[in-house]
Structure formats: C-alpha cells, structure tokens
C-alpha cells in the first residue's frame, strides 16, 4: 500500500506536473517521463474508442506485477495519474485522485500566475498535494 508518484497530463498530452513520493519505481529521466505521458495519452484516446457499446470514458486502471496506474479524466480533458503499489484499493486511489483534482482547482486554476496548459509551478498546489498524500 504505497503511492509512488503523481502525474498531471494536460489536454494536449503534455506532462505538466510530476512528483515522486516514495522510491519503488525505477527513476525516470524527465524526457522519458514526457514520452511516457504522451504515450499514455494516446493509449487513453484509443481505449475510449474501443467500447463496443457506445461511448466510454477510456481506461481507468492499468495493472502490472509491480505497480498499478490509476487515471482520472476530468471534464476538461486534464488527466490525473496516480502510480501506486498493486495492493492499493481502487476506491482509495480514486478518493486521492478526486482530492488532488480539488487541489488543482484551488491551487492551479485560481492562481493568476499560472498559465493554463503549462507546467505547474505553484507552491500552493505542492503543499496541498503533500497534505493529501502524506497521511495515506
């Protein structure tokens, strides 16, 4: 039960926020992280079209032997991605992602010094995310 990292991907597929919490994943160079985020954005777009029965919100969880990747897609196309240990419960990860979304609305969208769709540099957001993840 551990949260490894949090990514925020903007609606164009660019990685705008990346933060690691605990070791457990192989460290990524920032370039690799960007490529990975872009790839995930593409995969997500494909999975959204795969559903045989009408529209779909796209994939929400990707599981592997060593980690689990939870995705929250917002109405505006921003994606919040949480990397956790495989044992992490879906409901728990979802609640963390929802609270991160709230922190994003407060600390990023209401901050006049943040340009939309650009990398997030906001102390307020950092502090809020830290407070959400730490107790878990």
């Amino acid at each position: 039960m551990a949260i490894f990292a949090l990514w925020v991907i903007n609606k164009a597929g660019g990685l705008v926020y990346q933060r690691n919490f605990t070791d457990g994943l192989a460290p990524l160079s920032s370039n690799d992280a960007l490529v990975l985020a872009g790839t995930l954005h593409g995969i997500h777009a494909i999975t959204a079209k795969l559903s045989p029965t009408g529209s779909s919100s796209g994939c929400q969880v990707i599981e592997s032997e060593t980690f689990k990747l939870h995705i929250l897609l917002t109405a505006t196309g921003t994606k919040f991605v949480l990397l956790t240990s495989p044992a992490e419960l879906q409901a728990q990860a979802d609640s963390v992602l929802r609270r991160v979304y709230e922190a994003y609305a407060d600390g990023v969208m209401k901050n006049p010094f943040q340009t939309p769709e650009m990398p997030i540099r906001s102390e307020g957001f950092d502090a809020r995310v830290g407070a959400i993840v730490k107790p878990a």
Partner: peptide
Amino acid sequence: KYISIPKEMSQLSC
C-alpha cells in the same frame, strides 16, 4: 488564499 507568488516576483503582495 489561492495565490502562489512565483519566486522571481517574491516582493509582490496581492
């Protein structure tokens, strides 16, 4: 409450 001043503008107070 929701404003984070960037480092290069640290003297600013909204």
